[in-house]
Design a protein around this nucleic acid. Structure first.
Length: 365
RNA sequence: UGGGGUGUAGCCAAGCGGUAAGGCACGGGACUUUGACUCCCGCAUUCGUAGGUUCAAAUCCUGCCACCCCAG
């Protein structure tokens, strides 16, 4: 079978390609360039990654190509990303990137190339049956990336394969080493997918100009100034620049809210009830295998990537859900995704619209 | 202008004759395909300033400077 595989230049997708090749598939590597930016010397930032794709593909013995979805990425992912920040929320661009780019535009490209499947280096497993496809957590619980795939539909998952999903990261690196892949020791990439690690505030400043305002406590006392509400997220500590105060407790300060109407950032010293929430509402949930039976049910959920599963009670409400936590949760943030799990199965998820604070902030009521 | 008080890192703050705690902030790193959180490391050869006493001074003494409070 012909399989198109998205190759990033990293070990995971390299080993994924290798495994598929070993299984006898007609593997075609494709490097996606979705962000146009050059360094100080005018060299494309993605050039080095593409060079790794070339080295690996040659070693494995598969053809490789490059496609450029920059325009689409800007239209479908980045514009949404900026809009959300403008609204005071904290979006997760990578979930959307999977929905719109990797498993949509790229999947269409695979179909055009008459491929029977699309592969990626994601740490996730899928299980096909007569009822459809189920998305399962990766074998390596520390690397599981189903959180980012929770927005995918049956149609998208049906044609997707995740060759490294059943392996441990450690084994993936070993395989890469054994086969002399050039990127075997390459550091895992982080940061926004296709954009990479950035000084986040200054990166946003390039697109969203500063809008300074006051930083105030939950009871409205002035503390400091902020540079723009969109540069901060709930629960954030770093970057507030609030030093010692003779009326303080000596603890750190955290962002607990945003007063959009008055352009005030609400901060609090220490971690208190205002930072925690009891439930959330999500207006639009993608249930991978259809909405679970019953109006309400108990499962686990994550509110951010790499968070231990939390027990929740879900009540389906139209296309969305009301999600009650068994334990109060810290800094659940609108714009981020809530993703549901039933043991190994990723049920789906959706963007968080609002939360019910453990203790409301008077200024925002 | 009298009287009192205080000056220790960017901020808060210990120290009260024996060779500069701690916290916050900040910087770096780890972790991490979002943003965060978290963790680790770093961060005053010097205590407003100029002298003096002492083996030894941020600590005691004196002058000066700055700020604060109370009088007026």
């Amino acid at each position: 079978m012909r399989i198109v595989i998205g190759m990033s230049g990293g070990v995971d997708s390299a080993v994924a390609a290798l495994l598929l090749k070993q299984q006898g598939h007609d593997v075609v590597g494709v490097f996606m360039k979705n962000w146009e930016e050059k360094d100080e010397e005018g060299v494309c930032l993605a050039a080095e990654d593409y060079a790794d794709v070339r080295r690996v593909a040659d070693k494995i013995g598969i053809p490789y190509y490059s496609v450029n979805f920059s325009k689409l990425y800007k239209e479908k992912v980045f514009s949404y990303f900026l809009e959300e920040y403008k609204c005071g929320r904290t979006p997760n661009p990578d979930v959307l990137c999977n929905n719109e780019i990797k498993f949509k535009a790229f999947l269409e490209l695979a179909h055009t190339a008459e491929a029977g499947a699309l592969a990626t280096g994601h740490y996730a497993r899928s299980e096909k049956s007569a009822d459809g496809v189920r998305l399962l957590r990766a074998a390596d619980k520390g690397k599981d990336q189903t959180y980012f795939l929770a927005g995918l539909t049956q149609a998208q998952l049906r044609d997707a394969v995740f060759p490294v999903g059943g392996l441990l990261k450690h084994d993936v690196r070993n395989i890469a080493r054994e086969h002399g892949l050039a990127n075997a020791e390459k550091k895992d990439s982080t940061g926004i997918c296709f954009i990479g690690e950035r000084q986040f505030k200054s990166f946003l400043m390039q697109f969203l100009p500063a809008q300074p305002g006051d930083m105030v406590t939950v009871d409205g006392r002035f503390v400091s100034r902020h540079e723009g509400l969109m540069y901060y997220t709930l629960g954030q500590r770093k970057g507030l620049g609030i030093g010692g105060r003779n009326d303080g407790t000596g603890e750190s300060w955290f962002v607990v809210g945003k007063d959009l109407a008055a352009n005030r950032l609400i901060v609090q010293q220490g971690e208190h009830d205002e930072l925690f929430s009891l439930s959330l509402d999500a207006k639009k949930i993608n249930w991978i295998a259809g909405a679970p039976a019953g109006e309400t049910f108990v499962c686990t959920a994550k509110f951010r990537y790499r968070q231990p599963d939390q027990r929740v009670e879900v009540r389906i409400e139209g296309d969305g859900a009301h999600v009650r936590f068994f334990e109060p949760q810290r800094a659940v943030t609108p714009g981020q995704w809530v993703v549901f799990y039933q043991d190994e199965v990723c049920l789906g998820g959706g963007p968080i619209d609002s939360v019910e604070p453990k203790k409301p902030i008077a200024l925002l009521v």
